[in-house]
């Protein structure tokens, strides 16, 4: 449910380091709490994002959540599949449901995020 190798933000994003870049998504907890995701708004490739600042939006029928960047940098990839199939976010939040890939400017920011155990404590599942 909450992979060990990921870093987690207090706003329920996860971050995975892949060859110096950071893949970003939302956690199972966030996906479940939103229930059926109907729309995901992501920035275009090339957008600069700031650590823990909003970079996009995810919507269900009756709720909207801002997406926060778990690391500063430039967006280099965007998950285009979510445009037509936002439900992937519910089905596979750590795999096919990823949001963006960021070329980070300061990898040490990842250390400010939570580890799995801390995150579980945050969501009351420890």
């Amino acid at each position: 449910m909450y992979p060990e190798e990921l870093r987690y933000s207090t706003e329920h994003e996860w971050a995975r380091l892949e060859n110096g870049r950071v893949r970003v998504g939302i956690t199972k907890f966030a996906a479940d709490r939103l229930s059926d995701v109907v729309f995901v708004e992501l920035p275009p490739v090339g957008t600069e994002v700031q650590f823990m600042q909003p970079f996009g939006v995810v919507e269900s029928v009756k709720a909207v959540s801002d997406l926060y960047a778990p690391v500063s940098g430039k967006v280099v990839e965007v998950n285009e599949a979510l445009k037509d199939h936002p439900e992937i976010l519910n089905q596979d939040p750590y795999g096919e449901g990823w949001l963006v890939v960021i070329e980070p400017t300061d990898l040490s920011e990842l250390q400010k995020l939570l580890g799995r155990d801390e995150y579980l404590k945050l969501i009351g599942e420890a």
Binding site: F39, E59, S60, V61, K62, A63, V64
Partner: peptide
């Protein structure tokens, strides 16, 4: 598409 509206998105 009610998430556009004030009762959900409030100031945004």
């Amino acid at each position: 598409l009610q998430t556009r509206e004030q009762h959900i998105r409030r100031e945004k």
